[in-house]
Simulated assay, not measured.
Amino acid sequence: MTTMTDIPAVDWQGQPIDCSACEHQDCLALGTCGPLRSCVNDRYAKRIDRFFGTNPGLAKQYITHSYFEVRAVAAKYLDLFQLNRLINDQDETVRASVSLRLPAKLLTKLIHDPDREVRVRVASRLEPADLSGMLHDPDYYVRVVIARRIAPGMLFHLARDADSAVRREVAARIGVEWLTKLADDSDDEVRLTAIRRMPANLLPPYRFDSDWRVRYEAVQRLPTEYLKSMTTDEDTTVADLARERLELETSLENRKDAYDQHQSRQ
């Protein structure tokens, strides 16, 4: 197993680190930095993080450092005023780090960031009411995150999304009045998700679905009068469940009739 001390102490340009030439001699003397452990000049991000963790006040000095990892780690320790200076950093790793700390009201500045990972983080942190500006994001996973978080009343905008993963998330949260549209989706998983949330009285048309899982879900809750037609379903699992339910319903009806007759004789 590789440990931190197994990784050589070299800077971001691959040169050996020389502590005697470092401007942070005071930190070295205080023990808040040290080779192979905590060093802002090291190319290893964990060592950079340890340096700023024990010397957070120095982070602002490295906002314009040439090595992106230094800027990205420094972003974790900057005050919000200084952090704002990195919103348009040329490196996506830096902007991603910034997106984790910006106040929600400032995150809208990054909704059109060219990097999808940045936008995923933004979509994960924005207030749900502010997500509408990202509904048409070009990346499917950004839209998946939006579908999981946006207000249910706004989900109809994504009900016909080009990606089935997005539509599946929509089907899991959208209002019941939209479920029949999603239950007719071309994707089996979307239909199944919609069917599972659909009221029993709306299930009869889906007993003929091409996917046995949809039919199985339907047969579990179908009104009794539709069960007989499903006892001959091509899938034995569906047919067996239909017969079991039909037998149970018949048994319950017979018991009820017997009870009613008994009561009428008294």
Rank of each mutant, 00 (worst) to 15 (best):
Thr3Leu: 08
Thr3Met: 10
Pro8Trp: 00
Asp11His: 00
Pro16Asn: 06
Ile17Lys: 00
Ala21Phe: 00
Ala29His: 12
Leu30Cys: 14
Cys33Gly: 13
Pro35Glu: 10
Ser38Ile: 03
Cys39Ile: 02
Cys39Trp: 02
Tyr44Val: 05
Tyr44Leu: 10
Phe52Val: 04
Gly53Ile: 03
Leu58Val: 01
Ala59Gly: 03
Ile63Leu: 10
Ala72Glu: 06
Ala72Trp: 02
Ala72Leu: 06
Lys76Val: 07
Leu86Gly: 00
Ile87Trp: 01
Ile87Asn: 05
Ser97Cys: 05
Ala104Asn: 15
Lys105Pro: 12
Lys105Asp: 15
Leu107Phe: 12
Leu110Met: 13
Ile111Thr: 15
His112Glu: 10
Asp115His: 11
Glu117Arg: 15
Val118Ser: 04
Val118Phe: 03
Arg119Asp: 12
Arg121Gln: 14
Arg121Cys: 14
Arg121His: 15
Ala123Phe: 01
Ser124Cys: 15
Glu127Cys: 13
Asp130Thr: 04
Leu131Glu: 02
Met134Thr: 04
Arg143Trp: 05
Val144Cys: 11
Val144Leu: 14
Val145Ile: 15
Ile146Tyr: 02
Ile146Trp: 00
Ile150Leu: 09
Leu155Val: 05
Phe156Pro: 11
Leu158Met: 03
Arg160Tyr: 10
Ala162Ser: 15
Glu169Val: 08
Lys181Ala: 12
Asp185Met: 03
Ser186Trp: 05
Ile195Glu: 08
Asn201Leu: 14
Trp212Pro: 12
Tyr216Phe: 13
Glu217Asn: 09
Thr224Tyr: 15
Glu225Tyr: 06
Met230His: 05
Thr232Glu: 14
Asp233Met: 05
Glu234Lys: 12
Asp235Gln: 07
Asp240Cys: 09
Leu241Cys: 13
Ala242Gly: 05
Ala242Val: 02
Arg243Gln: 14
Arg245Cys: 01
Leu246Phe: 01
Leu246Tyr: 01
Leu252Ser: 15
Glu253Gln: 14
Lys256Cys: 12
Lys256Met: 11
His262Glu: 08
